[in-house]
């Protein structure tokens, strides 16, 4: 119960930043999510999520970046996500992460394992260059073995070509 109310309080404070106002009735904040702020300004935390938790990272920071076919450079549109990830990781220095690199189905199994490793490493280097200690960051490639979408279409493939920052320890819970 106490955690729940703490969460609501944080949600309300964030609401101040995003909306410039905060209703005194916490329940109203909890049941009426603020409108999505314009990216890449830091998103307002979703209500009911513990700051510093894996869910906080996933929902309020964003855990995924995407890649072009056969590429492993961080795209301009994903720089902001990684900036948020780095800032969040510096705010919660006990958190340890593993970056998963994934490929779409259009590559042989072995090549895609190597490509996933390149992508995971690209995310790792981006975070480290923004101050995240390298010792907190591990990488793993899943190649094309862990798709999140299984249609044979570009919209699906583009979802599968991804780097996902997953929290492996040290987060609030």
């Amino acid at each position: 119960m106490s955690r729940f109310s703490t969460t609501l309080k944080f949600a309300c404070l964030a609401g101040v930043l995003a909306l410039g106002a905060c209703t005194k009735k916490q329940e109203a904040v909890a049941t009426t999510p603020p409108p999505a702020p314009p990216p890449p300004v830091a998103a307002a935390p979703a209500p009911g999520i513990l700051p510093g938790s894996a869910e906080d990272f996933r929902v309020n920071v964003g855990d995924t970046v995407h890649f072009a076919l056969d590429q492993y450079n961080i795209e301009a549109g994903d720089q902001a996500v990684l900036q948020r990830q780095a800032a969040w990781l510096q705010k919660y220095p006990a958190v340890r992460i593993t970056i998963e690199g994934h490929a779409d189905e259009r590559g042989t199994r072995e090549y895609n394992l190597a490509l996933g490793a390149r992508r995971a490493n690209a995310v790792r280097e981006a975070l480290v260059s923004q101050g995240v200690s390298a010792g907190r960051v591990e990488t793993v490639s899943y190649g094309k073995e862990r798709p999140i979408c299984t249609d044979s279409s570009e919209s699906c493939w583009s979802q599968n070509r991804r780097g996902v920052t997953t929290i492996t320890g040290g987060a609030n819970s």
Binding site: Y72, A114, A117, A120
Partner: peptide, 9 residues
């Protein structure tokens, strides 16, 4: 076998 180091195999 292949060994990956800093993203390169």
């Amino acid at each position: 076998l292949s060994l990956e180091t800093n993203g390169n195999s």
